[in-house]
């Protein structure tokens, strides 16, 4: 019982773990994308760029300013979120009344600018980022050796996803947000500052992407291309899950991470296209997405 279909169990579990970690990042990003789409009616192509900026902010704070790991994990999302406020207030805000297409193109342009600038300054190579001393090493779970940092990534991602979900579904602020999605004019009439709510939503979700980037820094190297390579997969995840449900986005993201991990074990050549193949199947079988109520 040490092999399944000719693959050692330890290898299989290792790949599943990697898949779960990838899935955690997909979840953090697709959650933000879904909330931004729900609230602002914007497909934020720049989400990957903000993820990359989070990684670079963490790298800069750690290697240049000597801030510790925990400090960077807190500061990087705040920096990215602040940038998000600027983008929303100066640019995105003016496009709300237009076709969705324009905000998609705007954020696409922003993504190109950010990636182009960082590629120009840092080249394509990755910046190494050490695992924090408090999270090095690992624990033996009996069936698998779990590096501590990987376990931490999965746990904290899940906690943040669930907290965000609870905040939107169960708190008063969340109720305002959901109401503003349904009918912004009416909510505004009740004396709630809807434009501020929108800005904060965008900043929070973008900050979430920055947090994911900072969290990812010790696992993958920090590089200018890290954002665009993940965002397209996350788009596929969002197409599969549909953007109607936040819980659905989280479940889909983790599930696809695991499917990717399994593909890597049994048929490595197809691992990079596994998510897209799943997407094609879902469009064929259930065109509106797994968790969507309407097309």
């Amino acid at each position: 019982m040490t092999e399944i279909f000719g693959v050692p169990v330890a290898v299989l579990l290792g790949q599943l773990l990697l898949g779960l970690i990838n899935g955690s990042f997909y979840a953090l990003l697709s959650l933000g994308l879904a909330i931004i789409f729900g609230m602002l009616n914007v497909i934020n192509f720049a989400h990957g760029a903000f993820y990359m900026l989070g990684g670079f902010a963490a790298w800069f704070l750690l290697s240049r300013l000597g801030l510790g790991y925990w400090g960077t994990l807190l500061a990087a999302p705040i920096m990215v979120g602040a940038l998000g406020v600027l983008v929303e207030r100066l640019l995105l805000k003016r496009l709300y009344r237009m076709d969705h297409l324009y905000s998609l193109l705007l954020t696409f342009g922003i993504a190109l600018m950010v990636e182009g600038l960082f590629r120009h300054i840092f080249g394509s190579a990755g910046m190494p980022y050490p695992v924090p001393p408090s999270l090095t090493g690992g624990i033996n779970l009996g069936f698998i050796f779990l590096p501590l940092y990987r376990g931490w990534v999965i746990v904290i991602s899940l906690v943040i996803c669930i907290l965000t979900w609870l905040a939107i579904e169960r708190t008063k602020l969340g109720a305002y947000l959901r109401a503003a999605t349904e009918n912004p004019a009416l909510v505004q009439a009740f004396g709630i500052n809807v434009p501020l709510l929108l800005t904060l939503t965008y900043a929070f979700c973008v900050g979430l992407a920055g947090f994911a980037g900072a969290l990812a820094a010790p696992l993958y190297q920090v590089s200018p291309g890290m954002g665009s390579s993940i965002i397209i997969v996350v788009f596929a995840v969002v197409v599969i899950g549909g953007m109607g449900s936040i819980g659905g986005a989280i479940v889909t993201a983790l599930g696809l991470g695991i499917i990717e991990g399994l593909t890597k074990t049994f048929y490595p050549a197809a691992s990079s296209i596994a998510v897209f193949v799943v997407m094609v199947l879902v469009i064929l079988i259930r065109p509106s997405g797994l968790f969507n109520r309407e097309a």
């Binding site: 640019l91 237009m98 705007l106 342009g109 922003i110 190109l112 600018m113 182009g116 120009h120």
Partner: peptide, 19 residues
């Protein structure tokens, strides 16, 4: 000069100023 950056800038200017 960074080409990708400038292409991105064109995008932003186009979308904001002359659609």
């Amino acid at each position: 000069l960074p080409i990708t950056f400038i292409i991105g800038l064109f995008f932003v200017v186009c979308v904001m100023m002359f659609r």
